[in-house]
Design a protein around this nucleic acid. Sequence first.
DNA 1: TCGGTGTTGTATAACGATGGAAAAGTCAGC
DNA 2: GCTGACTTTTCCATCGTTATACAACACCGA
Lengths: 341, 341
Amino acid sequence: MGISLKDVAERAGVSVKTVSNVVNGYRHVTPATRQRVQQVIDELGYRPNLTARHLRKGRTGIIALALPELGNPYFAELADAVISYAAGLDYIVLLDHTNGRRDQEILFAQGFRARLIDGLILSPIELENEDLLARGNDAPLVLLGEREYEAPHDHIAIDNVAAGRTATRHLLDMGRRRVAFLGARHGRARRTAHLRLRGWRAAIAESPDAAGGDELVATTDGYARGDGAQAMARLLDSGAAPDAVFCYNDLIAIGAMRTLTERGLRVPEDVAVVGFDDIDDGRYCSTSLTTVAPHKQAIARAAVDALLARLDGGAEAAQSEPRHIRPGFALIRRESTLGRP
Amino acid sequence: MGISLKDVAERAGVSVKTVSNVVNGYRHVTPATRQRVQQVIDELGYRPNLTARHLRKGRTGIIALALPELGNPYFAELADAVISYAAGLDYIVLLDHTNGRRDQEILFAQGFRARLIDGLILSPIELENEDLLARGNDAPLVLLGEREYEAPHDHIAIDNVAAGRTATRHLLDMGRRRVAFLGARHGRARRTAHLRLRGWRAAIAESPDAAGGDELVATTDGYARGDGAQAMARLLDSGAAPDAVFCYNDLIAIGAMRTLTERGLRVPEDVAVVGFDDIDDGRYCSTSLTTVAPHKQAIARAAVDALLARLDGGAEAAQSEPRHIRPGFALIRRESTLGRP
DNA sequence: TCGGTGTTGTATAACGATGGAAAAGTCAGC
DNA sequence: GCTGACTTTTCCATCGTTATACAACACCGA
């Protein structure tokens, strides 16, 4: 095993608590004692045992971040942001992925890492409201992303309806009249894409001469490039003849552009494309991708801050009303709608 | 606080140890007692406190995985694989990123998460051999990736020289004669790209009529798409006139393709491109990317297995010779060299 | 010299779990 | 009914840390 406080105490000829006091920077320690103890600490290379400290304090300093999948760059970039920001506040982030499966999301919400973590940030896909209400766990939970719940938890999400509307309006402003939506969902995950779809509908409705029939809405099974490629193919085969697509996310948009190119259609001349997420990939596509950019840093900050407020804020903060925070977003205009300069 | 063994014990009218025995499936417990205890456990919703267990056992069941950056899909996908595989073995993975900075890598190697983690898997970029030798930490360390060290640690990496040669030879086989290498490095990180560059040289050397001058080697500052785009631009401006490029990784390759398209050059007709990593992006570029695919699952398995062998194998395993494991790779041929079918 | 005040250090009990040894209980065989 | 062998349960110490309570000491003014 390693060096413990006891070893240091013996060597320095003081009590264990005094060493602990030095380690923790307690005020009332004579400079002489402090120096002597510190010297022994350096000599022996003492490092505090976090496990023991956590046991005693009842807190671990670890928060969990559960995301659908890291393979999606949006989540990877978001994870990056959360880890960095939490590290600055002396919190360690335990990163997990749920594969967007309900059973795994429930597992996390229930807190299967009981008391290893102080709190949890979860980005759900299929989780239902009832799953949250059945939660028998006291660790604070912050929800991330599009889904809206009635359970009493803080929720961080950009205004997806407004974002969807902004994206769609941009396409309409560029003169497009048959704007398709790519990435609607069936089944449980329906609500996830629903908000962006609602934004699309709203923008269409504001534009009298724009087409907005259901034949312009294409569903996908997942959120990856392949799903976008397939959905685009189906849309083209169906004869819906869109002159623009607003995609649920950038990955789907990239897949869609791939299909368009394969079919000999030009982006944006024949079909303009807008994505969502502003992942790094979109910037370097052969036709760079216009996209809605949620402010990831702000989301990360808001999530961690909300969680820590419940953790560190004492009883009144822990019981206070759930907050709904809406970080900002921006429409980044690139070649897939503006064309090559 | 939560429910502890003691609470369960009191309620069930048995000793704490008996409850612990039930929880841990200890053999000699009467079915009657077991059932009664189990019932109380379910009733109270008892969950063992991992922190306390870890303190007692001296092990946490947590391993750390330190990667340069999650924003790079290769690492994200790899992390995904490691987390999944470790979870199957009841280990939790703590994911961190070093940004490829030496100071951060040293921090991890030194084990700043002392005794929170049982072992560490590190994918270094700038770390030096001396940093490893100076390591004053007993937790096992497994190294991942191209860099080669003389320090006594297990090392998992595909054969980068062979992979580089395979990729380059593929380009030569397709009739290219001016094959450039994109992504060499200056300074500390030099050695990282060195092996793939060596493979490039080897393949060129085997092909008498192929050009192989230094004007065909372009350095980059990083490993992102932007670096590839810039490097490609510089290469074109320098007049080196390559008819193919082998890129250090897929991101650089994607950036390079972007520049080629901008300059009106066709891929692969004018310039063929090969990447490295087989990230999902490459599959859905408008020109899908030929690439070297390291077997990520195998790498993840090997890394975790090597670490756990040192952890669980007892003293003799912990002291045994460091192993060097070489998972396989494959060349995935796609449009960026074969052309559109 | 004496209390009062404030600082510095120590002893001991937790935190929640597990391991080992001792104690208690069960049962067969004589 | 007793012994011995085995099973089941309890008791206590322990992991490394911090909190609480208090002891020791110096310093000050009266």
